[in-house]
């Protein structure tokens, strides 16, 4: 059984607002399947006694005091933006008419 199906890739593409052609779907499904297969080998190695690990360090409660620190200037913040307008990030149309 593959790690990811073509339908799942199509679903992800829809969530990501990416338009993929049929041959792209085939191509990505195959590639992603290889990647997921490789990562899945980790669970073959880990036995029942190894719980899923979200954090490698045995730390808790790393926090900072509620003290303001300098921000970037708007110019610095927008320096890498592909487009800006009125000191804001400009992004392409999010939703269509429907």
């Amino acid at each position: 059984m593959p790690g990811i199906t073509r339908e799942e890739v199509a679903h992800l593409a829809r969530l990501s607002r990416l338009e993929l052609k049929d041959e792209e779907l085939d191509h990505f499904a195959e590639q992603l399947d290889v990647i997921i297969g490789a990562v899945a080998r980790v669970s073959e190695v880990a036995g029942q006694d190894v719980p899923p690990t979200s954090h490698p360090l045995p730390l808790t409660n790393v926090m900072r005091a509620d003290e303001v620190r300098p921000s970037l200037t708007p110019a610095e913040a927008l320096a890498g933006a592909p487009a800006s307008e009125e000191q804001r990030f400009r992004v392409p149309q999010i939703l269509g008419e429907d």
Partner: peptide, 12 residues
Amino acid sequence: RIHGAEYSLLDY
């Protein structure tokens, strides 16, 4: 509104 807009501007 978002429907029918040509583009959007973001203030973070």
